[in-house]
């Protein structure tokens, strides 16, 4: 049983469960959309202001609300399910990677639905070369999925989990939020998008190493 095959089996499991429960797509995505509607209602009626803050709001909502995709209840494994995986000899790192990829794919869908909605609602000024931020969105999804998966494992089965996991993820996701949000700014000021992209690649790699290395010690029980 290769590592890649284990990853694929775990990934297929998570996506199939999401397909049945729809927790991410039919609950968290609408929640994010509601957030995009709420913010302008709390601000003065100023179309120019909205156009300016639109992209930033998109990234904030993606991180603050999208993170709930990674803690979705339907993907939380019970202790007997975890035991079963361990009895079957599943590599804890493969489990981490499989779960993180599943969350990353769901986060991409989240972004794909929220981004056009933001453009319609906030009407930000078009910036030439905007497709260059698509890789940033991809990297943000992958990075956030990994932080969230780690936090989900760290807080698994704790009673205050639903409040604790977001507290852990939010400050740790700053290295994803800032460069992703600066992508558009860099394009506007013609500074090039290379620096934020490379920075995010480095962050994602660091998170991947951290997740894979800590998977084993996290899994051991008493």
């Amino acid at each position: 049983m290769t590592f890649r095959r284990q990853v694929m089996i775990i990934l297929r499991r998570d996506l199939r469960i999401e397909g049945r429960s729809g927790e991410a797509i039919f609950v968290t995505v609408p929640f994010g959309l509601v957030a995009l509607f709420l913010i302008p209602l709390a601000l003065p009626l100023d179309i120019e202001l909205l156009a300016r803050i639109g992209p930033g709001m998109f990234w904030s909502v993606t991180l603050l609300f999208g993170m709930f995709i990674t803690f979705r209840q339907s993907a939380a494994e019970s202790s007997s399910q975890q035991e079963q995986l361990r009895m079957l000899g599943v590599d804890p790192a493969a489990r981490f990677v499989g779960r993180a990829i599943a969350s990353a794919l769901l986060l991409l869908i989240f972004e794909l639905i929220l981004a056009p909605t933001m453009v319609v609602l906030y009407a930000p000024a078009a910036i030439p070369g905007w497709p260059a931020i698509i890789p940033l969105a991809l990297l943000a999804a992958v990075g956030l999925a990994m932080i969230g998966t780690l936090a989900a494992d760290i807080t698994a089965s704790l009673r205050s989990r639903s409040a604790l996991a977001p507290l852990l993820v939010a400050p740790l996701s700053v290295p994803l939020l800032v460069p992703a949000a600066q992508g558009l700014e860099s394009l506007r000021t013609k500074n090039g998008i290379m620096v934020p992209t490379m920075f995010m690649v480095a962050v994602v790699l660091a998170l991947a190493v951290a997740g894979v290395v800590t998977a084993q010690p996290l899994e051991e029980t008493t």
């Binding site: 499991r13 469960i17 429960s21 399910q81 035991e83 009895m87 079957l88």
Partner: peptide, 18 residues
Amino acid sequence: ARRRMGLIAHHPALYEDL
């Protein structure tokens, strides 16, 4: 060694949505 052992836990290890 775990792969050579079968464990039935107190609660069935089934995924409810599958």
